[in-house]
Nucleic acid binder design. Sequence first.
DNA 1: GAGTTTGAAACT
DNA 2: CAGTTTCAAACTC
Length: 781
Amino acid sequence: MDTPDRTQIVTPISKFEDSPVFNYINSLSPIKPVKSINIAQTFNSLSFSSPPSVFSSPHLSSQRESRFLKRHFFSGSSKPDLSLEDGLTGNMNEAIPDEVQVPGNPAEPPESSGGGCSIREVTVDPTNENLELALELPRTLKYDCGSPQCNKDSSEGNKTDPMLVVSDLPVTLFQFGENVCVERRLSFQSGAEIHGISQVEPNKEERTECDWESLISDASDLLVLDSSSNAEASRIEDQNTLDIRSSSLKSLTLQEDNAHDMQISESLVQIGSCENHEVDNSAAQSAVDDHKETDHTPDVFSSAFQNNTQADFPTEVVDNKAGSHISFGGKQRGIRRRCLVFDTAGARKRKLEEDSTSSSSVTSQSDGKYTSDDKQLVSIRPCNSTSPCMIPGIGLHLNALAATTRDPRVVKHETLASGKELISMPSSLSSIHSLSVEKKSLSSSLALSSTYTDISPVGNDLQDVLDAPHASVFKVGEDESSPKKKRRKLEQGGESEACKRCNCKKSKCLKLYCECFAAGVYCVEPCSCLECFNKPVHEDTVLATRKQIESRNPLAFAPKVIRSLDSVPEIGEESNKTPASARHKRGCNCKKSNCLKKYCECYQGGVGCSINCRCEGCKNTFGRKDGPSPMGFGEAEQEEEETEAGENNGLDVSLQSKQVRRDEEQCHDHVLPMTFSFQIGRSSMQLPYSSFGKPPRSSLPPQPNFEKHFQIIPEDETPEFLRGNLSPISGIKTGSPNRKRVSPPHRDFVSSPSRRNNRRLVLQSIPSFPSLTQQETSELQ
DNA sequence: GAGTTTGAAACT
DNA sequence: CAGTTTCAAACTC
């Protein structure tokens, strides 16, 4: 390897003799030259303008040389690291420029047309080396800004293409661009060292594979290059670069000059081209797709979703490793999700029909394991065969959110849970769920001797998750012979809320009157409904109905309770008791129950009444609607709260916060802007348990964790959040007149990065009483 | 288990 | 948007 490279290098060097750098390098021992070259290049490129002479043809030569040089360097072993390390940003340019620099102006941004020429020339060279390279080069040329650096990059990129392919991203990823450039360099170097240019391709494949894995592992970025490089030095460098990349990707804006950006873009483009060439490798492609998605996500998704997507990546990647390749880009994923929602329904039917209950249960369990192992995989609690199925449909707004979530998980979830009948499977949530699921699984197992059916929180968008109590926690009613009795027993006994059970007589379970339908779950055996259409068999009808309802009220299926994730209770709210920020989406309208019975949705949800409530004689122990003031209750009430919800809440909060942190860590910071999905992800973890399900019914583990973790931004509220309004309540209040119900916002959920910092709202379906939460929290801890 | 109460959902 | 009706859960006996 080395020898050929060196020989090759010699020629280019001769060409570049003009450049002092080359001379200097030549003077150096063959081994060292690489380093020296790099250094020299850096200097030249950075500080010095390249000699004018170089411009005309030099690019080609420079590129060639660069290749050679790089090869040497890499082969040489030493330097690349330095170059890489030195400047992810500047180094990139430098390294390339060194050779290429000549042309011109180092100062000139890559944008210059010159690059194109050089590339072309380079392409010619490739013929010798590899057709692929040639192909890539032209492509690169197209994209290349023309800056010598770019050229170099491109040339390198050619070699590195595999890596690029792996990491390939849409051009959009500028931030990543820097990284990409580095990667290219690295790859290039590695390639040179490892193999002749011709060899590069195989390397590429390897790289792609390796990269893929690396990507998977890192999720954030483009680690691909690293593994690929054969040379240790190159590896090291690659790693460094990778690390840097990841870091840069996360936080980096383009520090480098436009030239860098250009390079990046070029590299990206090249990558794309490479992908085409290399497409052969399915894995590589998939990886590339993932990368693209990830990369795009940042660019495209300014919203929190990006974060989510990124965060999800790791999992996705892992999943891919596991065997399933998810090729969905974040964006695409989102789109697919929506489709999935519906698709899932179909899938569910299929699966349900095929697998029936048994399969679902099995899958769910297995899933849960996977999820636990994978961390982010959707955790599906083993649902009893009878567990109610989640309805595929999700609120439109939810869908939008779901869209942000990552498909991979969703897919997995679907596949895994498909048997279960989850209606909607937002990926993001699923990921979150996995974690939560694990925890829950433990807690649930403890709490409930009976089997739990988790509803993959994922399934429903926010709703499901939020509503988890309803849907998510399906308690298999199987055990119970008579639905009603069982239900009551369960409720009373509080064993587990399994699936919701309805007793609809006239609504056909296609209206919100039906708890199952409202929860996005299919009716199951335990249900005693008559003429029920809320079954997989009638999926179309169910979905159509859901759409109608959602058309009327986008939030119809959204969680009814909104809770802020922040541990800090909202102003006036009691922190310890009910989730401070938790509020009922619309508020209640109680007249006679004094909000002390489950007739009251607020009470049922375990949240205090808010300004949105129009209740009369409110005595809601969880809090009052009166303004910011926390609960206006008497101490007695507070005591009650404490007893009922307080413990749970407090624990939950702390626990949740911890979990959230954990989740975040796991998920990664990669996700820059926390977005909706991201938050969801966190929450999702908990969601499974979190379900706010009505306390009485479900003995299931409380969702406390979920509450805080899960953040769903109600459409209504979203604007406020976006605005920076923190308190969900306030948002709600502002949005809707006190006495009037808040009309669901028409906007789709848009997560804004800013939200992260801000308080997170959690939409929850009617929360179960806090009591359950304690167990979970304790367990979690 | 039947009947009543309650308030959300749906309708006008 | 307000008022009414429908509906099913929650509750009581």
